[in-house]
Amino acid sequence: MAKLALRGVVKRFGDATVCDGIDLDVEEGQMVCLIGASGGGKSTLLRCINLLEVIEDGEIRLDGEDITVPGLDPQTVRSRIGMVFQSYNLFPHMTALENALLAPRLVKGQNSESDRQEIEGLFVRFGLADRMGNYPDQLSGGQQQRVAIVRALAMRPDVMLFDEITSALDPQLVGEVLDVLLQLKAEGMTMILATHEMEFARQAADKVCFLKDGKIIEEGPPSTLFTAPREADTQAFLARAIK
């Protein structure tokens, strides 16, 4: 059984159909990369999986359980699915550590010293040990994004969603964030990335999906999708994206 299974997911904003019947299976421990031009529906799809957007049709199953049943409390689902955003979205009035402690404390009631040490351990693991006491505006973009990842991991999610998390970063800071993703993959985290980092997707992804106009045009392992794309749209996109 797939860890995460999408069937016929449809999302509209007014007249615009942003996700147009998307099917996708993500196995436990897989890293799936969504590629495609902006406006193709990558970000919206991730927001749908995290129930930040309500889908019009179709279903999304997490461990076989339909999480898009109308009336279901989104809170319990969201605490199992972590999400990291392009613009970091750290809470500016809290230190890096407070950012990460907030949700475990409020949602899971984790307030003990050992809970705290465990989360501090995440900062140490991702090279942020000396940044825990800093406020977001005292951190570089790369550090902020790594803190955002730690904040999501602090909830011990089953699945992590990454929405173009390196797109707002200076080129020399992209590497440190991508390294974190490789580390997570090595630890067996199930991940979905919307990304423009083609080289990274080619090297690290287990599966790559090319989205256009709200549809998955083509999907497959990076070795075939990048070297021998079948669809004309995919070929055109890759020709422009990889120079």
Binding site: N50, I81, M83, N89, F91, L102, A103, V107, R151, A152
Partner: peptide, 8 residues
Amino acid sequence: SAALSLGL
């Protein structure tokens, strides 16, 4: 969005 995504 960020706060909701954490389960708050």
